[in-house]
Amino acid sequence: MHQTPPTVPLPGPAVPRRPRTSFYAAVGCLSVIAGLLLGVGGFFGVRALQDGGSTPVVDGEGRAESTDGTPPAEEPTVLDKTPAGADSAVPLGSTFPLRSTALGGEVEVTVTEVDWDATEEIHEANSFNEEPREGNRYLLLTVEGAYHGDGFDGIGAGNWANVTYVAQDGTEYARSYRVTPGHDELIGQRGVAEDGGFLAEFCFEVPAGLEAGGHFVFDDVVRDVDAGAWVDAV
């Protein structure tokens, strides 16, 4: 029996393909934009993590400022002239010269440390030290000095400088004469080394609730905070 072969449909006209150049160009542009956004976002994200919200950054004029709006702490410096007055206050850790009439020479002063609650240390230094009054505590200022003169007078060494603590509210606290951890029976502080170096400690009695801050003021003989050398307490 004769079979009719299956009918195969004739191919229709070819449909032209659209060029994909514009598609690839669009994808490329989107990739570039996404890369830029990710790069910029990642940069600021890393900076935010590194800064922690408080690390000083440098503004357009090259000045350091804090990201939380507070000014950064100044770096300690070395001065060849004694700073005078509150407007010339120097950062904690700075070194400056101070004339000492008691020692008959000049002392290079470096304020190295502030212990804001040294009550226990003062008591352990000497059990005969007076306890601070009720509601008060002792703070302890440590100073490294380098003496330049003809001879270190052991008798006057304990009072080689007047030091006053001026709190943030302007209240002045005079030195409390207590035996300190670095006390030496001869001069009231650790002995002077051959190069003239020595360590001195100054005790102050302050209210227990007093916040850290303010300034320490150094002068020679007369207690004159307005003309003394001011050092940041923190």
Rank of each mutant, 00 (worst) to 15 (best):
A102M: 14
N162L: 03
E134D: 15
P71F: 07
G62F: 09
T164D: 11
V107W: 02
D115Y: 00
E75Q: 13
P71Q: 11
F152T: 03
L49D: 05
A73I: 04
A157M: 01
P83D: 04
S127G: 09
I155T: 12
E106K: 10
A157S: 12
E144L: 11
V57R: 11
L103D: 00
D80A: 11
E120Q: 14
A48N: 10
F152Y: 15
A125D: 03
E130H: 09
R47E: 14
P91H: 05
G35I: 11
E134V: 13
L79P: 00
R137M: 10
T82A: 09
S100W: 04
E61K: 13
D80I: 01
R99K: 15
V163I: 14
K81Y: 00
R99H: 14
G154L: 14
G154V: 14
E121V: 03
T142H: 10
R99N: 12
A64P: 07
A73M: 11
G35W: 12
G52A: 09
Q50C: 00
D117Y: 08
A118G: 07
G42K: 05
A161C: 14
G35V: 12
G53E: 05
L92Q: 01
E121Y: 01
P71N: 01
G35R: 04
S100Q: 00
V46C: 02
G41Y: 02
A89F: 06
N129M: 06
